[in-house]
């Protein structure tokens, strides 16, 4: 049997979903459901996936999807898991699926509450770095220098992207990890590890958005890889908020940031000064990360 056929049996996503061509979030959820299924229930907050999932009675996934309002994902997920436990179905994995808006911004309070209570759920943020379902408006996950429709040229996103991983680590949750669709084995390993742990788990997936980022549809996996290789989106995991470990690449191998920025129209208006500023910001974050990780875990 071919590997592809093996995977096909595990596939939970159904062809004919409503994602744009090259959607990173569609691919992320494909890997996610394949890794965690079939005994899976998804709580889905307002985001691109509200559309990708299709209009009932149609559906894009073989598992139940419970839609919920924008700020509520962390709490609805908590309630669903405890409700299933009360009804003798505690073995079902409950995944909360949210975009960056539903995680970094409007969903942060419920996310923090669920993390603090150490609810037994996996919160997955697919981060396309802006409100993409409404057409590319700035969120607190939008990187410095990017153009959005609420920061149109000559404006640009000012201020840093919020460091959600640090926020989650500060909650002392059992497990948090970053992942991209360019490293599906790494992503699957992290999801499987998350599933084997009880308590609150957080997975942060970078999700390239061709229409929003102004990138080629065929470039989603490549961009995801460049994000990792430039240090724009490092791959690592955090156990119990304190044990940080890189899962890909060393300090010395970072590619120049321009390799990543040049392939996206959202960064087109960035002048040299801004690119240097963004590079300095990433260098700071890299330095912080390396300090957290410690020499032994820099892989």
């Amino acid at each position: 049997m071919l590997v592809d056929d093996l995977n096909r049996e595990r596939e939970m996503i159904i062809s004919g979903h409503n994602a744009c061509p090259g959607c990173g979030a569609a691919l992320a959820v494909r890997y996610l459901t394949r890794a965690l299924g079939p005994n899976l229930a998804i709580v889905l907050t307002a985001s691109c996936w509200s559309i990708i999932a299709g209009a009932p009675p149609l559906t894009a996934l073989k598992c139940p999807i419970l839609h919920c309002p924008f700020p509520s994902a962390g709490s609805v997920g908590s309630g669903l898991k405890r409700g299933l436990e009360a009804k003798g179905k505690g073995d079902t994995t409950v995944v909360v699926l949210a975009g960056d808006g539903g995680t970094f911004d409007i969903g942060l309070q419920a996310l923090s509450g669920a993390a603090q209570r150490n609810e037994d759920i996996i919160f997955v943020c697919y981060d396309n770095e802006a409100y993409m379902n409404t057409g590319m408006q700035t969120s607190s996950a939008t990187p410095f220098g990017a153009r959005t429709n609420t920061a149109p040229y000559p404006l640009f996103k000012e201020g840093r992207k919020k460091d959600i991983m640090q926020i989650m680590a500060a909650h002392g949750i059992p497990y948090a990890a970053t992942a991209t669709v360019a490293f599906p084995d790494d992503m699957e390993a992290k999801l499987k590890k998350a599933q084997s742990i009880t308590g609150f788990r957080f997975i942060h997936v970078l999700s390239p958005c061709p229409p929003g980022w102004g990138s080629e549809s065929a470039d989603t996996v490549h961009l995801s890889r460049l994000a990792v290789q430039t240090g724009f989106f490092p791959l690592y995991e955090i156990h119990n908020g304190v044990d940080w470990k890189m899962t890909w690449m060393t300090d010395k191998s970072r590619l120049p940031l321009s390799a990543y920025l040049d392939r996206q129209r959202r960064f087109k208006q960035m002048d040299k000064e801004k690119i240097v500023a963004l590079q300095e910001e990433l260098d700071d974050e890299w330095y912080f990360l390396m300090n957290k990780v410690g020499p032994a875990d820099r892989c």
Binding site: V43, L66, C68, P69, P71, S72, S75, V76, G77, S78, G79, L80, K81, R82, G83, L84, A86, K87, K89, A110
Partner: peptide, 11 residues
């Protein structure tokens, strides 16, 4: 919101 999720499980 929590009640919403729990009720969806039949609780």
């Amino acid at each position: 919101s929590f009640c919403n999720g729990a009720s969806a499980a039949g609780a």
